[in-house]
Amino acid sequence: MTQLTCGQARPLLEPYVDGSLDGETAAAVRSHLAGCADCRNQHLEAVSIPARLRALTAPEPPSDLLPSVMAAVARVRRPRFAWGPLILEIGLCALIAWYLSGLAGLSALFSYTSGELSDVVGWGLGTTQLPAAPSLDLLLVLACLALVTVTGYHLALIIGATSEPSGRRAGQG
């Protein structure tokens, strides 16, 4: 039978306690325990730990737990898609595009959706050439400002509706 050192035997104590070692290894552990007082103490500790873990107590849940859970649940709003403002936004976007390119341009835009969508995005983001548009046009600026406002508000709505309810207890902390 192989002789185990303390360093080899100790990691085997837990499987040994559970009886999940094969016969030969278990015998080796047993013979090591017979000759090593330190490891015997460790073995005693290992034997006691499962029972002590089972016996760990937690305090009783506070009596207001159930009401507070139900109150928190009542506050939960199911997240919504919030499509509504998108209609306004897309309308504004179309208005800007139409103003810049004329109705004919707009129809061209829709007939070549796959090719032109990237152009429009690139144009808005500054990677494509700007169409012949007045450099400072009040109506255009206003339309863009309106679009920024509406989309910003829309995002705020969505973020507000999906943010997690605070886990802090009311009136404490």
């Binding site: 199911r78 976007c93 969505i158």
Partner: peptide, 26 residues
């Protein structure tokens, strides 16, 4: 539902960036 909401939020963000970038360009 969260994925759907994210899609809407993404569309709104794209439009916001579009308009904001345009204002910046001006």
């Amino acid at each position: 539902t969260v994925a759907g909401t994210a899609l809407v939020a993404g569309l709104a963000t794209v439009l916001l960036l579009f308009a904001f970038s345009f204002l910046l360009r001006l």
